[in-house]
Design a protein around this nucleic acid. Structure first.
Length: 186
DNA sequence: GTCCTGGCAC
DNA sequence: GTGCCCGGAC
């Protein structure tokens, strides 16, 4: 177990790695909240390389929240065709209409407000406030779990509950919520 | 069979 | 807490 180790130094190395090796994905061109939102929904249980093409077409077809809200469900599902988990597409449109009705057509910058939208759970809400609004809110995904499990020298299966709990504790020590701005912007 | 930047109903 | 949703890559 490499643990305990220098958390600040580890975090800096991760950020440095990202700055050098991050993939050129279409949602990393801008960090516009609408784009971040669509990207995060498409990324749910989907390999990012595959979501990339769909994202480009989606943004071209539906440039903003209003375009999503105004579209027919058929148009929405057509743009989603092949991605799977079609409830994500329906929830995207439900949320778009909800945003126009209740949030002046804007993506809220608040974690709890995001959680209240259909299709947005803890993971996606954390991702949106972190990436689009620069609020530090750590969350485990498959890659984070894999890297941290290796750093902490955990040999049990990464997905089991006990390991996830331990990794989550470690993650929150590394990246405390709202613990100062950590910019990964180019 | 497994996994992928999960969310949701039960 | 468990099961389901979808499709492709391996």
């Amino acid at each position: 177990m490499l643990y305990p180790f220098d958390h600040d130094r580890f975090r800096d190395r991760i950020l440095h790695w990202f700055a050098r090796h991050q993939r050129d994905l279409p949602w990393r061109q801008t960090y516009e909240p609408y784009h971040v939102w669509v990207a995060e929904i498409m990324g749910q249980q989907t390999q990012l390389e595959r979501a990339a093409e769909y994202f480009r077409r989606w943004i071209n077809r539906f440039p903003d929240i209003r375009a999503v809200a105004d579209a027919s469900e058929q148009e929405i599902l057509k743009a989603w065709e092949g991605l799977g988990y079609y409830r994500r597409a329906r929830n995207l449109q439900r949320a778009a209409r909800q945003l126009l009705a209740d949030h002046e057509g804007e993506i809220p910058a608040d974690y709890q407000a995001l959680l209240a939208l259909p299709g947005i759970g803890p993971y996606t809400a954390s991702a949106i406030v972190s990436i689009a609004f620069n609020e530090s809110r750590p969350v485990l995904d498959a890659n984070v779990s894999r890297v941290l499990a290796r750093v902490a020298d955990i040999d049990q299966p990464v997905r089991c509950q006990a390991v996830q709990k331990a990794l989550n504790r470690l993650l929150w020590e590394l990246v405390p919520a709202d613990g100062g701005v950590i910019s990964t912007r180019p």
